[in-house]
Simulated scan of single mutants.
Amino acid sequence: MRNNLKLLGELQEIDLKIDLLHGEKDTLLGEIAALENSVVEARNVIAEKSAEAVSLEEAKKALEESLAVESENIVRSEARLKEIKTQKEYQAVSKEISSAKKLTVELEEQILQKVGQFEELQKVMAEKQENLNALEVNIAAQQGELQTKVDKLEAEIAAGVVAKDAAVKGLPASIMKRYYKLRDQRRGLAVVEAKDGSCLGCNMNLPPQLYNSLFRGDDVITCPHCQRMLILRQETEN
């Protein structure tokens, strides 16, 4: 049983180390994901600007088509003036021409406005693309460094798993069942040290008789307060 208690202490240390390594790995993976997300966001901004550019081009094209129609109408109306016989009809057509010319001026101004907006948008897109290129280079370097750390942690986790498997093989199934149940219930801490008459898991005083029985090491004893398995460090170290 003393050997079982020693193995339990070793197993708990291994599991806590593996838990810590997993936590560090998750943190690094979160950083990598955040870096990837920053690139995605930058690309999405460029995509939005590109969509705006397409919309401006379509709006400009529609204005140019309207301008072409009005210009053709003016030409036809001016040709009609030469054939008009009455003053009333002449005035009506002249008014149509005047309105059409006014509209063409407005359309031309709108087209110029769209051209200006498009050019400005292109400048913004070029700047953002340049920033994105620099960001991708910078992030690629950071991701490489982070991935190296992740790979190192994964190697340490794998080594921990090998050590854990060796410890588990030496422990009875009944003890392992209790151990894993306590791990789930007590946030990963199933085995704790008893020292100076207290449980270091919950910091509660242990009954003297129970504490003294730990020195014999002939059974797995649990804390009556937190139910964790108790070990004496000097027992596991000798």
Rank of each mutant, 00 (worst) to 15 (best):
Q129D: 02
S77R: 02
A92E: 06
A92D: 11
A92S: 05
A62S: 13
G116M: 01
Q143E: 09
E154G: 01
A100W: 01
A158T: 15
K88M: 07
N73P: 00
S71M: 13
L28V: 04
E235F: 04
G201M: 13
N212H: 12
L189E: 13
S38W: 04
L153W: 02
Q129R: 10
S71L: 11
L21Q: 04
E57N: 06
R186H: 14
K85N: 01
A141E: 14
N133K: 11
L232K: 08
Y211M: 03
S99P: 05
S213A: 03
S38H: 00
A47N: 14
D219E: 08
L153S: 04
A140M: 07
E13N: 12
V161H: 05
E58D: 14
N138S: 11
S213M: 05
K149Y: 00
E136T: 11
E120K: 11
N212T: 09
G9N: 15
G160S: 13
L189T: 09
L56C: 00
V69S: 02
Q91E: 12
L103I: 14
L112V: 07
K60H: 12
N4L: 12
Q227R: 10
E156N: 09
E31V: 00
R186K: 06
E156W: 07
I74H: 00
A53V: 15
F215W: 08
L16P: 14
K152A: 09
G197D: 02
I111Y: 08
L135C: 00
E145L: 06
L112N: 02
D165R: 14
N205Y: 05
K61G: 06
K82T: 15
A159Q: 14
F118M: 13
L189H: 03
V40R: 13
E78P: 10
E119S: 12
A158G: 15
N3V: 15
I111T: 06
K61L: 08
T86S: 04
A53K: 15
A163M: 02
K61N: 08
